[in-house]
Design a protein around this nucleic acid. Sequence first.
RNA 1: GGGCCGUUAGCUCAAUUGGCAGAGCAACUGACUCUUAAUCAGUAGGUUGGAGGUUCGAUUCCUCCACGGCUCACCA
Length: 490
Amino acid sequence: MEQLEQIRVQKLKQIRELGYDPYPNTYRYTHTIGQVVKDFAEKTAEQLEHGKQKVRVAGRILANRPFGKAGFMALSDGEDQVQVYAKKDQLPERDFQLYHLLDIGDFIGVEGTMFRTRTGELTIYSNEITFLAKCFLPLPEKWHGLTDVEIRYRRRYVDLVVNPEVRSVFIKRSVIIRELRSFLDERGYLEVETPMLHPIFGGALAKPFKTHHNALDMPLYLRIAPELYLKRLIVGGLNRVYDMNRIFRNEGISTRHNPEFTMLEFYQAYSNYTDLMDLTEKMLTEIAEKVCGSRVITYDDQPIDFGKWTRLTMKEAILKFSPEKITEETLKDRAAVERLLKQLHADVDSRMPLGTLIGLLFETVAEAHLVQPTFIYDYPIELSPLSKAKAGDPSLVERFELYIGGMEIANGYSELNDPVDQRERFLSQLQARERGDEEAHQMDEDYIRALSYAMPPTAGEGIGVDRLTMLLTNSTSIRDVILFPHLRPE
RNA sequence: GGGCCGUUAGCUCAAUUGGCAGAGCAACUGACUCUUAAUCAGUAGGUUGGAGGUUCGAUUCCUCCACGGCUCACCA
């Protein structure tokens, strides 16, 4: 409200009149608040009394309990908090006047000596207060805090000030990203940067954001996946590469979908999809242990054990979770599959090929049951225009997806490296596009040309970093793991 | 896009069948030199998301709109 703000503007004026610089350009502290808390944690009141150690710390005032000629403040540097005691006869008169002009949210620097209060709390007995910055807008009320999710996302800066668990989620996110990098770096992978602006969007089945380059007067698309560029690098002899960065998909927004999200894609020459399943098990188990301190985590009230991994073919998963008793023979019968799907109220299109129907059946009956880490492998070829066909069964490809907590976390496959087959797959995608499938893959002649120079056998995988972060921070909304999630304009 | 729920003071929430719009915290004034959700006394703070309708009277009932949450669909 205007009035609250005006009062604080007046206070800043008075602070200036006392002779303080309202916006000083630095403060030299001797300790972070964390160091203070740690260094003096073991000291008794008597030890502190005799030691009289001087400290200078800086931070934001989060609470103030004044009473007449003294008062206590809670000072936070974002990471840690410490109590500050301001007492009239121990401070210069000007500093004590300043104390009465301070508000919750202001930044100050404090010089003083450490002591313990009667209740034993470690506290800085201040002998100097330095004004650092004024907070004009009131912080949320201390007891309930900030809970309105919309304001939390719109004003993430306030959310971070008052909700320590939010800070901890984003610190974990940063650790996850660092650990993913170091896991791959240790194994000889090279991090590369590939274009964000694509003249032909590809590498995934999704709708893109379209933009325009003025000087060249040409349409460009924000990338939906870095895949095709990474494989061009494999052709060029960069045998292990990864790209961890943003991708953009022009689709619905939900608790599991943000229009821009972070994808780790990595490619490894002379390997197949089984190698990547092995690698992924190791990678995610290590990261869960590093981030959560245990192989067993809790997600959405369910225990998830990174010590127990399962691998099922898509068909096995369907048979296992189908409510109706069916056999593998049933899945070869298009009419039977269609009937099953209709019973389950799935959206069936009579033009869909059998493989697409099987994929749909899997999603309908099995996906939600996949809480423990489970690889689903051997996908119908129709769903996977970039994967290598399975030796001995041309209807399937060597592809897997990893499900944890009912969410799709990763997707990997043995890469199709036959340029002739790749051209045919693109052509059949074009047919799907003509049937109205906006997400079907485009033809990419240069990619086929790259494969025509020969790509060694290669396996590649994408890991949804936001989804993985949700899992490891027990967040059920993707917005809780993205600092500034997409919102409609205010 | 569909369904359900929601929007009241800076924040968290009340308001009976449709009958004077309230509390706690935050703020302001005063008291208080070891408090920690400090305490005590007092003051101020509102076009009840917006527009329209029904009614003597609407926070309350109806319609439309905006925004948000959850969920389903699409997707990762």
